[in-house]
Amino acid sequence: MLIRLLNPADAARFRAVRLRGLTEEPAAFASSYEEECDRPLEATQAQLAPKADGVVFGAFDGDTLLGVVGLQRESMRKLAHKGVVWGMYVVPQGRGREIGRRLLAAALDHAWTQWQLAQVNLSAQTGNQAAVALYRSLGFEVFGTERGSMRVGDRVHDEHHMVCRAPAALTKE
């Protein structure tokens, strides 16, 4: 299993995994399949181009992309000590192989060592017990729960807002 940063050459594979996640787990993402299905491949290539404030990691088994996770640094000066995890998804045939753990660990390592962030935030559907357990196991804590955060069809979903703080040895405080 190879975990690496994605780049514009990975756009078609990333797009396929992303759309699959939006279809199979619509309550896990703020975006919807309908909002992203017609997005031009060039937009995805631009999204995966190297940036100082945003990265996407992928998990590969050979040439097959099995999982993805994005990390975005907050852009405002007073918030730039924080990052946000987004778009985490592992395809069903990749589950049970520690792929999600390895992807999130790579994102956190990048946050701490490359960007020297003090904390990383994410949101997780309260009913997704596997995801919440994974996030907790890597140091995330719930700091709030938003009732009715997302509506998918006629069903309302709650979300936990979670934070992981940088290891004390890496903080500048």
Score class of each variant (00 low, 15 high):
110 H>E: 12
110 H>V: 08
110 H>S: 10
111 A>I: 01
111 A>N: 03
111 A>Y: 00
112 W>L: 00
112 W>R: 05
112 W>G: 06
113 T>D: 07
113 T>A: 11
113 T>W: 00
114 Q>D: 15
115 W>R: 06
115 W>A: 05
115 W>I: 01
115 W>H: 04
115 W>S: 03
116 Q>R: 13
116 Q>N: 09
116 Q>H: 08
117 L>Q: 00
117 L>S: 05
117 L>R: 05
117 L>M: 02
117 L>Y: 00
118 A>H: 11
118 A>R: 15
118 A>M: 06
119 Q>K: 14
119 Q>G: 12
119 Q>I: 08
120 V>Q: 09
120 V>T: 06
120 V>F: 00
120 V>S: 11
120 V>E: 06
121 N>C: 11
121 N>L: 14
122 L>Y: 03
122 L>D: 04
122 L>H: 03
122 L>I: 05
122 L>C: 09
122 L>W: 03
122 L>V: 04
123 S>W: 06
123 S>F: 03
123 S>M: 08
123 S>P: 03
123 S>I: 07
124 A>W: 00
124 A>R: 05
125 Q>S: 14
125 Q>A: 15
125 Q>Y: 06
125 Q>K: 12
125 Q>N: 15
126 T>F: 00
126 T>D: 04
127 G>E: 02
127 G>C: 01
127 G>T: 09
127 G>H: 02
128 N>R: 06
128 N>Q: 07
128 N>F: 03
128 N>T: 04
128 N>V: 06
129 Q>Y: 01
129 Q>P: 05
129 Q>C: 06
129 Q>V: 07
130 A>Y: 03
130 A>L: 10
130 A>F: 03
130 A>S: 12
130 A>T: 04
131 A>M: 04
132 V>M: 05
132 V>A: 13
132 V>S: 10
132 V>F: 02
133 A>D: 13
133 A>H: 14
133 A>Q: 15
133 A>I: 07
133 A>G: 15
133 A>N: 15
133 A>K: 15
133 A>C: 14
134 L>V: 11
134 L>P: 04
134 L>Y: 13
134 L>Q: 10
135 Y>H: 08
135 Y>P: 01
135 Y>E: 09
135 Y>C: 08
135 Y>W: 03
136 R>N: 12
136 R>M: 07
136 R>Q: 15
136 R>C: 07
137 S>K: 15
137 S>R: 15
137 S>T: 13
137 S>D: 12
138 L>M: 15
138 L>F: 10
138 L>S: 11
138 L>V: 15
138 L>C: 12
139 G>I: 08
139 G>A: 13
139 G>T: 07
139 G>P: 06
139 G>C: 12
140 F>W: 04
140 F>R: 14
140 F>H: 06
140 F>G: 11
140 F>A: 10
140 F>C: 12
